[in-house]
Amino acid sequence: MILHRRVTPGKVVFISMVMTGILAGAILFSLWLGTADIPFSALCRTLLGESTGGTTELIVLKVRLPRVLLAGLVGFALSLGGAVFQALLRNPLAEPFILGVSSGAALGAIIGIMLGFSFQFGIPAFSFAGALVTILLVLLLGTRRMGMESSTILLTGVIINAFFTAVIMFFVSTSTDSRLHTMLFWLYGDLSQSHFGQSALIAPVVILAAVVLYGFGRDLNLMTLGDEAACHMGVDVERTKIHCFLLVSLMTGLVVSLSGLIGFVGLIVPHLARMAFGPDHRLLIPVSAIGGAVLLIVCDTFARWVVSPSELPVGVVTAFLGAPFFMILLRTRGSQWNRS
């Protein structure tokens, strides 16, 4: 009997369930920890619907819970997007921001902040609009007669990123003091002051997109072998690329409009998932998604706790993960980067 690795439905279900258990643990942990000391028993009773006195209920249900849920949702979307983009672009350094959707969203948000729109609806709406514009631009500039070539589209992303970043820098440099704080805070990625309403609005779309993307799992496996090879094995390469690109960009645009730019999660989590469970996307996608939710919840908890009573934008915490991660990657897999 040969010991071989392959992905079966049973494996997918089992591992997903285990990861969901870990996610539940992370959520509980994050709800428990914070500036205000809340005993674990009080936390449990609050979550079970019992009344535990004003401040505890207030903090757990109205401050921490929406925040934790949003962190989970954002981590979920970005990591899933990262896994898919890494396959589509055949580039282990890809992540959902690489094609510029994030800088378009950022520009939209900056404009919304400058024009004085509300944080709950106006600014996210502007941000999402910015993301949509960028998606259109990428499609217009990055696809040709032959369809979406990964090198072309990567370059398009670089150009768009560069341009929008320049515009953002312009606005930031000419803005007044109070607006400046708000803009920078948004750009660093922040989950404070989140609302159920916002998360509830985008969660169904994100989950739907995730399900559809899961359906492309096997195709993505084949795409990592190259466009031609995938084509020869029956994959409709162009259709797969466009659909996956649109779905990931949509998800990314939605979550970025609420959370700002939280980097590295979409890059790191798929790698970790691959190291642990292998590159088959039918397992990689759920593991990345749930793992991303866990990671971001943990990072956000840390962001809230480390400089209490102040708090760090969570994007700062995830940024600090970047360098050590790449260090590890280099040490363990350096040789593999050079393989063709």
Binding site: G34, T35, R304, P309, E311
Partner: peptide, 13 residues
């Protein structure tokens, strides 16, 4: 001009 978390403001009542 310190940045304060929402929780902390609530805690101060």
């Amino acid at each position: 001009y310190p940045r304060i978390s929402l929780e902390e403001v609530i805690r101060q009542r």
